[in-house]
Design a protein around this nucleic acid. Structure first.
Lengths: 232, 232
DNA sequence: AATAGCTTTTTGGCATACCAAATGAAAGTC
DNA sequence: GACTTTCATTTGGTATGCCAAAAAGCTATT
């Protein structure tokens, strides 16, 4: 997907995907020796890759300890999404002012691609669906013509990657997401900052609600998981 | 010699101070070999330190090229301050909801310290004045009780350190800053998010105006600087 | 049999050696 | 004399080796 120029970036992308797909579960340690040999690279670039993921908030660094895959509490996730909300709202408002017609047309194209995928996606295709979803939001951030904003937004998106993934693949949410995305696109085409801002706010608020439910479900299943661990 | 933290972090702090104090001028390359030997450390930790500063936006990384001390254009600075504005506004609004009375009292204390310093500060004391100014805004961000927000805010503050410093020490701005800070404190004590948000917005907007003037002045003096360079 | 202390092993941190790409200078050609 | 091409030097990127600290396992003692 990303023919990233530098090696550490490629490794980071690889690890990121593994974290997203659950191959590396939250709480798992990332041992630099093992992963380095496993991926056929040396420890140095892998080390840098881990720093990149740490900066994105996907892994936690501890002094003189194995980094571990981040496992944010509900409160931590909510706090990050709150910031994400402010960033995306600002993105939308600025995009109304600064985006070119071509950029808005591109955003609509991504929206329609997402909509059609959304109707059929299942199994592994869910990851594709999700990546299109992320591309939609990223395109809006870039259309703000504010590089610092787009960059920070991308960082928070990456940080909430897993949470948004778990939320986005739920069947029940898809219709709502479709309509909210549609309204955002319509607002951009009308270049109506108020409307876009309000729609994005509602969109992210729904995400927060989803997260609350997801965490509640996860915590309910926690006991079972610990039983399984005991059996192993 | 390991009182505070990890070695890369210490190196980053050292370089950061040098950048902010102007020892390393904007545009200067950071050659990892030279700096490493100069500081008596190896390239590996210095390399990591540079990455930390890059993440903070103080240095720019280019593929297969020496990193250079960032020298943001007016448009880049304006873009960053725009994000800072959104972050500080959100901080203020959340602080109205989440801050403890003690935290708000502390913010007032910082405000009053800043006000009294502002009346007399000159020369080197300007740095103290400025640091109190930064502490004021940082305290509000922390009072939001949103760690992700406080962290990101701190990052942008560091990124704009030099710009805000140049702006803050201007005599002409001091009265305005005093009144705006006062209104922010009053809004916080009344726990009125609308008011705090509006005041912070105005405060940062004034900063943007200041930056425009500062950059205009700097660009006017640019020719002289380039003459000096030519002589060297 | 349980626990405390010690030893072994694992793992991350730092230094350094090697490699490849980019830059600047010098020389040769048009 | 100017431009291009090439080669040397500089500099970042990567691999690897060594070291110190932490975790785990074992033994000895109570």
């Amino acid at each position: 997907m990303t023919p990233s120029s530098t090696l550490p970036e490629q490794i980071a992308t690889h690890l990121r995907r593994n974290i997203l797909r659950g191959v590396l579960a939250p709480g798992d340690p990332i041992k630099e020796r093992d992963n380095a040999l496993e991926m056929g690279v040396s420890r140095t670039p892998l080390r840098e890759a881990v720093r990149i993921l740490a900066k994105e908030g996907l892994v936690i660094l501890r002094p003189a300890r194995s980094p571990v895959v981040a496992d944010p509490s509900l409160e931590e996730a909510r706090a990050s999404v709150e910031v994400l909300q402010a960033l995306e709202t600002l993105s939308g408002e600025l995009a109304c002012r600064n985006a070119s017609d071509a950029e808005i047309a591109e955003i609509r194209r991504i929206f329609e691609q997402h909509s059609s995928l959304s109707k059929t996606a299942e199994g592994d295709a869910l990851i594709d669906l999700f990546e299109v979803d992320m591309a939609f939001h990223t395109a809006i951030a870039r259309a703000s013509h504010n590089p610092a904003l787009a960059e920070t937004h991308a960082a928070f998106l990456a940080r909430m990657w897993r949470q948004r993934y778990l939320s986005a693949v739920q069947r029940r949410a898809r219709d709502r997401v479709h309509h909210q995305h549609e309204n955002i696109v319509l607002g951009l085409e009308a270049r109506d900052p108020k409307r876009v801002g309000a729609e994005i706010n509602a969109h992210i608020s729904a995400l927060i609600n989803n997260l609350v439910r997801l965490y509640a479900a996860r915590d309910a299943g926690q006991e079972i998981t610990s039983h399984e661990k005991g059996i192993e």
